[in-house]
């Protein structure tokens, strides 16, 4: 995939059944900060600089990178609900990390499932990657339990459970939640 093709992909909204993913732009800075500075949501994520201007600059820099897709999860009316990202993409090895997955409190259960599936759709079906890796804090038990239903646990250390997702995991996930998405499989 060429650099130009990747940048074109960044302008596309990935249309799901109930949610869409679009790459974040600087105008999303306030929303992202609102999420990341919310004590109910930020217990298990890294520290966030609360300055809006710095956040805008960070999003701008992320947008320019060909190795990163930082998505806003929004409903079909364009109302933002959360974020998810694929980053540190190594196109040669076909590997990337996925994470930064945060959804507003009260988001419907099917938003939870479909947003994660759409990120996998981008990684495997659009970018042609072979593997996604990620981790969750061991104390974030609900997220660890959720991922364990379809990913492969590669290791567990004192703080984190580490996962990887390959095509077979992705297909299993698509099948389990076949009613929740419009991704062909």
């Amino acid at each position: 995939m060429t650099e130009q093709e990747i940048q074109v992909l960044k302008t596309i909204s990935v249309e799901g059944k109930h949610v869409n993913l679009r790459v974040a732009s600087p105008s999303d800075a306030e929303f992202i900060l609102e999420l990341r500075l919310n004590p109910a949501l930020n217990r298990f994520i890294g520290k966030t600089d609360p300055d809006v201007e710095n956040q805008r600059n960070w999003i701008d820099a992320s947008y320019e990178k060909t190795t990163e897709f930082h998505f806003i999860i929004e409903d079909k009316e364009g109302i933002p609900y959360g974020t998810i990202a694929i980053y540190d993409i190594d196109y040669e090895k076909g590997v990337a990390e996925w994470g930064r997955w945060i959804l507003k409190t009260g988001s419907p259960a099917y938003f939870t499932i479909e947003s994660n599936l759409l990120a996998f759709y981008v990684a495997f079906d659009m970018l042609g990657l072979k593997k996604l890796v990620g981790g969750a804090n061991n104390e974030n038990k609900k997220v660890v339990a959720f991922h364990k239903t379809y990913v492969t646990v590669t290791s567990i250390d004192k703080q984190h459970t580490w996962f990887e997702v390959e095509d077979a995991n992705y297909k299993k996930y698509l099948k389990t939640f076949k009613d929740f998405h419009n991704i062909p499989f």
Binding site: T105, G106, A109, T112, I113, K142, V143, A145, F146, T149
Partner: peptide
């Protein structure tokens, strides 16, 4: 329970 809890 929240949405992730319901899914689990």
């Amino acid at each position: 329970i929240d949405s992730l809890g319901l899914v689990n």
